[in-house]
Design a protein around this nucleic acid. Structure first.
Length: 595
RNA sequence: GGUCCGGUAGCUCAGUUGGAUAGAGCAGCAGCCUUCUAAGCUGCGGGUCGCGGGUUCGAAUCCCGCCCGGAUCACCA
C-alpha cells in the first residue's frame, strides 16, 4: 500500500532530518481533497514537536526528502500545514494492471479462524413480514456477505419463534371461524392467512372483554378470564404436553406460514445456512438455569421463581424462570446461545435485532458470563434503529404497517412505470422486462435501506415512493448499464484491449481520480466489515459511480484516437463495472446489462 | 427517575482514529442530447453542525453541564 510505504519513508526522513525515532503509524495520510493539487496528503501539525520548525518549513523539508527518496513521489506542494504529494502515473497504472486481472479484487480469502454466526430475521409465525423485518433481513444478510468478503467464515442463521401463546391464538381462531380455509382453497399467502386469524382472535377477544366489563367485571380480570384466552391457554398446555391433535394443526398452520415466508425471502434475496426453531430449543435454557442455581449464581424467591441478581453491575434483578417453572424469553435465549456455541464454536455470536432490545442482550451476555461461559464475550448485538413513518412508528392497530410483499410489489411497479415513461428497451421480451423491473425495484429498495447507518433510526415515507434519481440504487445500476453498453460496442467493432500497451501512458485528471477510487475498494471492505456497516459500501459505490459518470462525460472512450488511450479507458471502464458489481453484490443488489 | 442511543441545509442522509473553506441527494432556479444510454453531466441559492463551557496548534468529531426526541428499565417476545 502506498500509504504505508510513505509512512515508512517518513520515519526515515524524521530520523535523518530531526534525529528522532518514531513509529510509522504517527503519520496521518489522507486522500488529497479534489480542490488541491496532489494525490496523498500528509498532515504535518503533529510532527512539529519533532522538527521544532514552522509547519510550512517542516512540510517542505519532508516533501523534498520524499521526492528525492521515493520514485513514486514525483512532486509536492505545501498549503498551510498540509503536505500534498503527487504520486507517479506509473504507480497507478501498475496498480491498475494488477488489480484488473483479479476477479476477486477487494475480497480477502477465507481465514482459518473460528466462524462468525449471525442471526437475523427471527420472525414470529403469527405475523407477516413488514418493513421493520425488511431492514433486519437486508442488514443481516449484507453484513454476513461483507464479513465473508473480509475473510471471515460466516454462518447465517434464523431463529423462528414458532411456539407460544401467539400461535395458539391463530390456531384457535382458525378452528372456530376458519371454515377449513387453507392457502390452497383461498389462494391466500400462508403467512397472511394465519396472520389474519391472529388479528381475528384479537378482535373477538376484545369483544369478550368488553362484554365482561359491561357486566361489571374489572378490566384486568376480564382480560384474564375471557373464555377465548382461557381456551388458548389450554391449547398451549396441550401443545406442551404433545397433544396429537393440537400438534397436527400446529404443524399444518406453521407449514403455511413457512411457505409464505419463503416466498418473501426469495423475492428479497435472503437466505440462511441454518434455521433454528424455538419449539426445538425452548427447553434448553432451563438446564442452564438449574446449573446456575446449583452453583448459587442464581437464587430462588419465596414463590419459587428464579432470578439473577445484576444489581452489582448497575442493572436490576432479572427473572429467569417463572414460579410455575415455565421459561421466559431470556431463558430461551440462554439455551439457544449455548446450542449455537456447541454447534459452531464461533468467535462471534451476532444478533441482528432492533435497538429496542439493547437491554435484553446486555443482560443475556452478563448472565452467561456469570455462568462462567467465556464464549459469552463473543456475543455481539448488532443493534439497528427503527424504521419510522412520517407520523412515528408503525402500528398494526392503526393500520400503518408497511407489508414487505406489498412494498416489493410496489417497487417493481414503480420501476416499470418509470421505465415505460422513459421509453426504453422496447425490444425486450416480456420476461426480460419483468426481470429488469424487479432488479431495479429491488435495487432501489435495498439501497434506500442499506445506505443509512444501521445504528440510526430511519424514515420511510410511503407517499413519496423511493427515488430512482440521485443517490440511489438505480443510479449505480444505470452507470453499470452504461459501461456495459460501451463494452458491447467495443467488442462489436473488434476492439480487444491489451494491458501491456498501457505502461507508458500519462493519466488525465479524471482517469487518475477514478483509479484512486478503485484503489480504495479493499480498504472500504475492511472498514465496512469492521464497522458492520453496509452503508459504507453503499456510499462508496455511489462515489465511485459518480466518479465514473464524470469521467464518461469529460472523456470519450471509443472515439479516442490514440488506440492505447482508448483501450486503457475501455479497460478502466470494465474494471469499474466489476468493482461496482462486487460492491453492490455485497448489498444483494444486481446490476443490469442494459436499462 | 436510572441506563442507553440520537440531534448536521426546507426534506432524506454522508462526514474513518480530532485536520484545509462542513459535503451529497431530493426539492427550487439556470444551462447541456446531429457525438459512447439525459435514470446522466454542469452551475446557482441554501448551515449558529441542539445550547453553553472546557481540552489544543486545530473540535461536527473528545470531556462536562443543560435542552429536545426516541428506546428501555415486564412473570411480553
Amino acid at each position: 500500500m502506498m500509504e504505508s510505504k510513505i509512512a515508512e519513508s517518513l520515519t526515515k526522513a524524521v530520523k535523518t532530518l530531526y534525529q528522532q525515532d518514531v513509529k510509522p503509524d504517527i503519520f496521518q495520510l489522507q486522500k488529497t481533497r479534489p480542490e488541491f493539487e496532489g494525490d496523498l496528503t500528509v498532515v504535518v501539525f503533529p510532527l512539529l514537536r519533532l522538527s521544532h520548525k514552522a509547519p510550512e518549513a517542516t512540510a517542505t523539508e519532508l516533501g523534498k526528502w520524499l521526492t528525492e527518496q521515493m520514485e513514486e513521489v514525483t512532486g509536492f506542494n505545501v498549503i498551510k500545514g498540509f503536505l500534498n504529494l503527487e504520486i507517479a502515473d506509473a504507480f497507478w497504472l501498475r496498480f491498475f494492471k494488477e488489480a484488473a486481472e483479479n476477479e476477486k479484487f477487494g475480497f480477502k480469502s477465507e481465514q482459518n479462524d473460528p466462524p462468525v454466526v449471525i442471526e437475523y430475521s427471527s420472525p414470529n409465525t403469527n405475523k407477516p413480514l413488514h418493513l421493520g423485518h425488511v431492514r433486519n433481513n437486508l442488514l443481516g444478510w449484507s453484513v454476513a456477505e461483507i464479513l465473508r468478503a473480509g475473510g471471515k467464515k460466516v454462518f447465517k442463521v434464523n431463529l423462528v419463534n414458532d411456539r407460544g401463546i401467539h400461535i395458539c391464538k391463530s390456531m384457535l381462531a382458525w378452528k372456530k371461524w376458519g371454515k377449513e380455509k387453507t392457502p390452497g382453497t383461498s389462494g391466500q399467502k400462508g403467512d397472511k392467512l394465519v396472520g389474519d386469524f391472529y388479528v381475528l382472535f384479537d378482535k373477538k377477544y376484545k369483544e369478550q372483554i368488553a362484554g365482561l366489563v359491561k357486566q361489571g367485571m374489572d378490566e384486568k380480570e376480564a382480560a384474564q378470564n375471557a373464555p377465548l384466552i382461557l381456551e388458548a391457554k389450554e391449547m398451549l398446555v396441550k401443545w406442551e404436553a404433545g397433544d396429537e391433535e393440537v400438534r397436527k394443526l400446529w404443524n399444518e398452520m406453521n407449514s403455511w406460514v413457512y411457505a409464505g415466508f419463503d416466498t418473501t425471502y426469495q423475492r428479497m434475496g435472503i437466505d440462511f445456512d441454518k434455521i433454528y426453531y424455538e419449539s426445538q430449543t425452548y427447553l434448553l435454557g432451563k438446564a442452564l438455569v438449574n446449573e446456575g442455581l446449583e452453583k448459587e449464581i442464581f437464587f430462588r424467591k419465596e414463590d419459587g421463581s428464579v432470578w439473577c441478581d445484576l444489581t452489582d453491575e448497575g442493572l436490576d434483578e432479572k427473572l429467569l424462570l417463572r414460579a410455575d417453572g415455565t421459561s421466559v424469553y431470556m431463558t430461551q435465549d440462554l439455551g439457544t446461545a449455548q446450542l449455537r456455541y456447541d454447534d459452531y464454536h464461533p468467535q462471534k455470536l451476532m444478533y441482528v435485532v432492533g435497538n429496542e432490545q439493547n437491554y435484553h442482550f446486555d443482560v443475556l451476555k452478563r448472565v452467561l458470563k456469570k455462568l462462567g461461559k467465556s464464549w459469552a464475550e463473543g456475543i455481539y448485538h448488532l443493534s439497528y434503529g427503527m424504521v419510522e413513518l412520517p407520523h412515528g412508528k408503525m402500528k398494526s392497530r392503526e393500520g400503518t404497517v408497511v407489508d414487505a410483499d406489498d412494498l416489493m410489489e410496489e417497487m417493481a411497479n414503480t420501476a416499470r412505470k418509470t421505465s415505460e415513461e422513459l421509453g426504453k428497451f422496447d425490444d425486450f421480451t416480456p420476461e426480460e422486462s419483468i426481470r429488469l423491473y424487479e432488479m431495479i425495484g429491488m435495487g432501489a429498495l435495498k439501497y434506500f435501506i442499506l445506505k443509512v447507518d444501521p445504528k440510526k433510526t430511519m424514515l420511510f415515507n410511503p407517499k413519496e415512493s423511493i427515488d430512482f434519481n440521485g443517490n440511489t440504487g438505480s443510479f449505480i445500476q444505470y452507470t453499470h448499464a452504461r459501461i456495459r453498453s460501451v463494452l458491447r460496442k467495443a467488442k462489436a467493432s473488434g476492439i480487444t484491449p491489451d494491458k501491456e500497451n498501457i505502461t507508458g501512458l500519462s493519466l488525465e485528471k479524471k482517469e487518475k481520480s477514478l483509479i484512486r477510487w478503485l484503489y480504495d475498494f479493499p480498504q472500504i471492505i475492511s472498514a465496512a466489515a469492521e464497522a458492520y456497516s453496509p452503508a459504507q459500501i453503499a456510499n462508496y459505490s455511489y462515489e465511485l459511480a459518480k466518479e465514473f459518470n464524470q469521467f464518461y462525460h469529460e472523456l470519450s472512450i471509443l472515439k479516442e484516437e490514440n488506440p492505447a488511450k482508448r483501450d486503457f479507458r475501455l479497460m478502466l471502464s470494465d474494471f469499474t463495472s466489476q468493482v461496482l458489481r462486487s460492491a453492490m453484490g455485497l448489498l444483494g443488489i444486481e446490476l443490469p446489462e442494459r436499462m
